[in-house]
């Protein structure tokens, strides 16, 4: 894009009206510094906009200015504030009194600061404990939800259960709950030992082929690292003669490693 195209791309208007993104602004400021034409275009639009706004004024009520002038008089900025010098014309006795008063006020101030700090500290602690409480409530709620889901599932007459029995000494076992009306599949883990981080479990649904061969379909890889996952919702499946769980390489995309079948069960349907 050459400079002319850049100028007529709408960026000038977008920048001036405050609609440009942070990157667009940065780029535009850079372009203004590099190309006088861009700067001229910006000033041109600013003047047009200003003229347009000046021709379309709405007069605000007088009270706004009055309040405003009062406000800015009280709003002297730091470093420029008017200094009021205190006249120290009192006797030494008075200044002694003043010293007591000053000491008393310092003590009061310290006291107030102490209380403020204690309250602040208490408040912070309370907030913290509330936070951790709400976290534990949340995780408990999650567990309750899982349990409820589980109870609903095992009591539903449309749901059939397939128990997967261990096929290795590791004694892996799980149950598959299969809802015949919704074809939803839930897996409840009974015993699946944790795996090294490069391995994952994989659930397969298996259909008996007409030629007697087994046709496995992956229903997903999963980890057993998280103890909370007693129940996992798996992809829906229309038809299955059996389910099996294997141990596979993390992220396996191929077929099942039949030597690694951990647990297996027929649907009996």
């Amino acid at each position: 894009m050459n400079v002319q195209e850049y100028i007529s791309s709408g960026i000038v208007e977008s920048y001036v009206l405050g609609l440009a993104s942070v990157e667009e602004r940065r780029e535009f400021e850079h372009m203004c510094a590099q190309h006088p034409e861009v700067l001229q275009a910006r000033i041109g639009f600013e003047l047009a906009l200003e003229k347009q706004a000046m021709e379309n004024t709405v007069v605000p009520p007088v009270s706004v200015k009055e309040k405003l002038m009062l406000m800015i008089q009280q709003d002297a900025p730091a470093g420029q504030s008017k200094v009021i010098t205190m006249q120290n014309s009192g006797t030494s006795r008075k200044s002694g009194m003043l010293r007591y008063a000053a000491a008393a006020s310092v003590i009061l101030l310290l006291g107030a600061a102490y209380f403020a700090y204690t309250f602040y500290d208490k408040n912070k602690k309370l907030n913290k404990s509330m936070e951790s409480m709400s976290q534990s409530v949340e995780s408990m709620q999650k567990k309750v939800d899982q349990m409820e889901e589980y109870v609903k599932m095992i009591t539903d007459p449309n749901v059939s259960v397939v128990n997967l029995a261990p096929t290795t000494p590791a004694k892996a076992s799980a149950s598959i709950y299969w809802d015949s009306t919704t074809t939803d599949v839930y897996m409840v883990v009974k015993n699946l030992p944790k795996l090294p981080s490069d391995k994952q479990y994989q659930l397969w649904s298996i259909i008996n082929g007409q030629d007697g061969s087994l046709q496995p379909n992956s229903m997903g890889l999963f980890d057993m690292s998280d103890d909370h996952k007693i129940i996992l919702k798996m992809p829906k499946v229309q038809k299955a003669d059996a389910f099996a769980i294997t141990i596979e390489k993390r992220g396996n995309t191929g077929g099942p490693d039949l030597k690694q079948v951990q647990t297996f069960g027929k649907t009996g349907l």
Partner: peptide, 12 residues
């Protein structure tokens, strides 16, 4: 500043 620009800014 106020006298000169309040009207146009109020318009906005």
């Amino acid at each position: 500043l106020y006298d000169n620009y309040s009207g146009s800014l109020y318009g906005v």
